[in-house]
């Protein structure tokens, strides 16, 4: 299936809350909340997110794309997914 644009953000938010932020109020996790620089994702957790993104959205993330530039905010991850899927 092809998720609608907003669905990418929705799926990411749902995954991040369940996996890394148990008990957190969903309203506190915004699309621009810093994940790497905000201490929510360490390097190991980022690897998990990368693999989730690859499996859920059917894309492949290159090693050089898994840094802060593309994985610090939900909006950045979603943009990466869209760009890759648009190819």
């Amino acid at each position: 299936m092809t998720p609608t644009p907003d669905a990418i953000e929705y799926e990411l938010r749902r995954y991040l809350l369940a996996e890394f932020l148990p008990g957190e109020s969903p309203a506190n996790l915004r699309d621009d909340t810093p994940l790497r620089t905000g201490g929510i994702l360490d390097s190991v957790a980022t690897l998990k997110v990368v693999s989730f993104v690859e499996q859920s959205f059917g894309i492949e993330v290159e090693a050089h794309e898994a840094g802060v530039e593309h994985f610090d905010r939900i909006v950045d991850i979603a943009a990466l997914v869209r760009r890759k899927r648009g190819r």
Binding site: P22, S25, N28, L29, G38, G39, I40, S43
Partner: peptide, 27 residues
């Protein structure tokens, strides 16, 4: 009320190296 995990993690990330961040928060 219940403190925000995001806020706590961010407060730590601002001053602590990642290896010092708490693994678990007990509220």
């Amino acid at each position: 009320g219940r403190p925000s995990l995001i806020a706590m993690k961010r407060a730590c990330a601002e001053v602590l190296p990642p290896y010092m961040a708490p693994d678990r928060f007990v509220i």
